[in-house]
Design a protein around this nucleic acid. Structure first.
Length: 558
RNA sequence: GGCGGCUUAGCUCAGUUGGUUAGAGCAUCGGAAUCAUAAUCCGAGUGUCCGGGGUUCGAGUCCCUGAGCCGCCA
């Protein structure tokens, strides 16, 4: 195998005012598949994430619940960790942006912005609520759209006609917290002069982001790039900007810095250095993100990092969104499903398998279609793949003392062929084309089932049991290879298979061995079929959550 | 409103640089098998490749245009 790679990767930070839902999981699971794959290949791959804890929505949410922001983010942190753990998302560290380490990094990055002359301070007028004594983000102002006159629209754009405007242009604007009419107030803000990095980004984007992303962002490059407002006025839950009392870092400034903080926190606990884990020349650095946040990760972030002399990401991997039954997730339709709600009714194995079946390296949206979900899991994972273990292992245990022997010629050819697929499958994993890897894996299962049917070992077992041993041995070897190839996606399933085969933990190299003359254990169910009723229950429960949710006034979410 | 992406069998999706009768799995129908969690195997049908124009000897694949969906608009 090639030389040991050193990889650091991150997934976007979930916002700490809400729960993890199945849309989030598209990202955390695909990054998890990829990380586990790299680890099985023998590389060092560290997967970092954290909660994104700052900003007005957190502050207001806490105020509403009558708790402090710290209590709110602490509570959600615990829940997030639990959800990720139960879904098998194996972060090397799951940290928080509300930490001294993160504050330090923010200060360092900001000092370089100021020192190198990329900060601009000027006054702007912003919507202000005299009742709540707070500057209102656009999403916290509601009113009638100046263009189409639709009621109850946000202060930045109209959901009804799609036009964009300033909150001051709304007809009958109201503070979404207290309902009073807001005023405007002048305040000094600090801006990051992104245009200073135009040339740098022109070179960086095409080689470090997907083509679609680069093309999309380059649209803005015909004119000067606009400054980015990185400060917010008190009261604000976040970090005060060094040298600017009463001014705080905008949450989107300190959020990606959480990647570094999470890495540093891990280093401190594992006796490693940040230099080595982030900055080293032989270190590969990747971010997994959704297509909605590309401008933060592909414009501001590399500029700020480069400006302060930190290593910038080698690649930003951009994925699409999850739709459910072909539509945007919806609370009222019961398709806005929280991770916890899913876990209350179904094994995470199924969703991991299904997402892997659908995921590729493009930023197209993927669809979770419940009928397709049930069919694919029941037919492919249980009917084709798991059934191989079931029919092979049980017959071997019942009639042939559970001992795998030599393979017959046809069986050996099939096993060799499946072993030879190892690098092809690995290439698909590497390219994050999980769906293509699964197609090959499923083909192996199809061939194995065909082989088993043609050889009819159930007939041989009655006449001359020993003559069935090679057939069962080949079938089980094929199944074993499938379990190894699936291990990045279905780690627990692979572990159960290790137990069945009396083996130590599989790695990618395990696929190069053929098992002969080997005692297996009693067969335990590896996976059972999805009962469609369980899916109905998830939808029902999600609808009930909506009803409970309505008691708390809804807030704009990040 | 501006910009980008997507639209291929009932469902979910593949379709390399344009090149013979457009593919897979599931679902459906017919048959076989009964070791196995009613799990498997063999065979069959299925498509105005979103609509409309165009370029070309030839377009699902390139260009223009219309519609729907998704996202972004700093």
């Amino acid at each position: 195998m090639s030389k040991k790679r050193k990889i650091t990767l991150t997934a976007a930070l979930p916002y700490a005012n809400g729960e993890i839902h199945i849309g989030h999981l598209v990202e955390y699971l695909q990054a998890d598949f990829w990380t586990r794959f790299q680890k099985l290949r023998g590389h060092e791959c560290l997967y970092f994430c954290a909660d994104d804890t700052h900003g007005t929505p957190i502050m207001m949410r806490a105020r509403q619940e009558g708790i402090t922001p710290e209590e709110l983010i602490e509570r959600n942190h615990k829940q997030h960790v639990l959800d990720f753990t139960d879904f098998g998302v194996d972060f090397d560290n799951y940290f928080t942006t509300h930490s001294d380490i993160n504050r330090e990094f923010c200060s360092v990055l900001y000092e370089h912005i100021e020192k190198n002359g990329h900060a601009d301070i000027r006054s702007i007028n912003q919507t202000y609520c005299n009742h709540d004594n707070i500057f209102l983000p656009d999403r916290f102002v509601k009113g009638t759209c100046p263009n189409c006159k639709a009621n109850n629209q946000y202060g930045d754009s109209c959901d009804s006609c799609g036009s964009t405007y300033a909150p001051s242009e709304l007809i009958d604007p109201a503070c979404s917290i207290c309902g009073n009419t807001p005023t405007t107030k002048e305040s000094e803000h600090i801006f990051f002069k992104l245009n200073d990095f135009k040339e740098y980004l022109t070179n960086w984007l095409p080689t470090h982001t997907p083509k679609e992303t680069a093309n999309k962002l380059m649209e803005w490059f015909d004119e000067d790039l606009k400054d980015w407002d990185i400060s917010r006025d008190a009261p604000y839950f976040g970090f005060e900007i060094p040298g600017h009392p009463g001014k705080f870092f905008y949450v989107w400034l300190d959020a990606p810095v959480g990647y570094m903080a999470s890495a540093k926190d891990w280093c401190d606990k594992n006796n490693r250095t940040f230099e080595e884990i982030w900055n080293a020349d032989d270190r590969e650095l990747y971010h997994f993100i959704g297509k909605d946040i590309v401008r933060f990760h592909c414009l501001f972030w590399p500029s700020i990092l480069d400006n302060a002399g930190f290593k910038t990401p080698d690649q930003v991997f951009v994925h699409g969104f999850l739709t459910v039954n072909g539509e945007k997730m919806s609370k009222s339709k019961g398709t806005f499903i929280n991770a916890r709600t899913y876990l209350n009714h179904l094994d995470p194995l199924y969703l991991r398998f299904y997402y892997a079946c659908k995921l590729n390296s493009s930023s197209d949206d993927i669809d979770l279609n419940f009928d397709d979900f049930i069919a694919r899991v029941n037919s492919d994972l249980v009917g084709k793949i798991t059934n191989l273990a079931s029919r092979g292992a049980q017959m071997l245990n019942k009639h042939l003392e559970g001992r795998i022997g030599d393979l017959d010629e046809d069986g050996k050819a099939l096993v060799d062929n499946a072993r030879a697929k190892s690098e092809e499958i690995a290439a698909h994993y590497e390219a994050r084309d999980f769906s293509k890897a699964l197609v090959i894996i499923r083909d192996i299962a199809d061939e194995a089932n065909r082989y088993f049917d043609e050889k009819e070992p159930w007939k041989a077992i009655k006449a001359d049991p020993e003559s069935a041993r090679p057939i069962l041995s080949a079938t089980l070897n094929l199944f074993r290879l499938i379990a190894i190839y699936l291990k990045p996606i279905l780690p627990e399933y692979a572990e159960k298979t290790e137990t069945l085969f009396n083996e130590s933990a599989f790695n990618w190299q395990s696929a190069q061995t053929v098992i002969t003359n080997h005692q297996i254990e009693k067969y335990e169910y590896l996976a059972s079929r999805i009962d469609p009723k369980q899916v109905d229950k998830i939808i029902e429960e999600t609808k009930h959550e909506l009803a409970a949710d309505k008691k708390i006034k809804t807030q704009p979410q990040q």
